[in-house]
Amino acid sequence: MEDMSAFPLEITGEDVPMVSFRKVRKAYGSLVVLDNLDLDVAAGEMVTIIGPSGSGKTTVLRMLMTLEQINGGVIYVDGQPLTHMSKGGTLVPANQRHLRKRRADIGMCFQHFNLFPHMTALENCMEGPVQVLGLPKAEARARSEELLELVGMIDKKDQHPSRLSGGQQQRVAIARALAMRPKVMLFDEVTSALDPEVIGEVTNVIRKLVSEHNLTMLMVTHQMGFARDISDRVCFFYDGKIEEQGKPADLFGNPKRERTQQFLSAVKEAV
């Protein structure tokens, strides 16, 4: 049993991080994917995670979205524990009810979009607000249309996903996640499944979000140029740990660690 007294029931004070991983551990059987991960993301910050395949980047996002259970440590969102809840003055693993309450702060976009194929673009966006948030249909529709406008998909609002290109589907997926008004948005390689010529439509939407909205974002990407442009901070993951992190200009321009240098030069050659 882990000693939970090392973890606060909530994080208080000034500058409470929007997301805080504290000594988080994740293992699949005997394979330790993340070990003792400490990572804070400030409110409004855009943090990009880069690193070789299998280094645990996706796992970080999936744990935060509560799609994976963690095996140690605690994740806090906006100062409140996400993976745990306080009971009798100590932290115990969260139950479904707690997860449902805390998860509302987080939204996620996936590599393969995962739109609901039996709903139109608009219906995809309205689904969460109507079913989960209980908004009246008219309000959910107005909110969804506004977001589809933002991502440039308003003309296609009545199309089903099967009639949309990958780039268009991903933009709808971003609108769908935003419709829940999350505080934190997660992007897991949202351009990796796209044809090169449509990557720009999706990255431009994310750029717009960064410049016009005060969202906290955590993004995994293999597009180094994009990461360099828009991130406040870049974390280089290697073998389940943060090998190096810093401002994009520093990390890309002047990497300190050998593994970072190797990775960045390997990526450069591949391009």
């Binding site: 509560t66 449902r100 939204g107 996936f110 393969h112 995962n114 989960v132």
Partner: peptide, 15 residues
């Protein structure tokens, strides 16, 4: 991925 998208929208199991 459909289940995961539903979880990401915070839908309940029943929903």
């Amino acid at each position: 991925g459909q289940w995961e998208a539903a979880t990401a929208l915070n839908m309940s199991t029943l929903q």
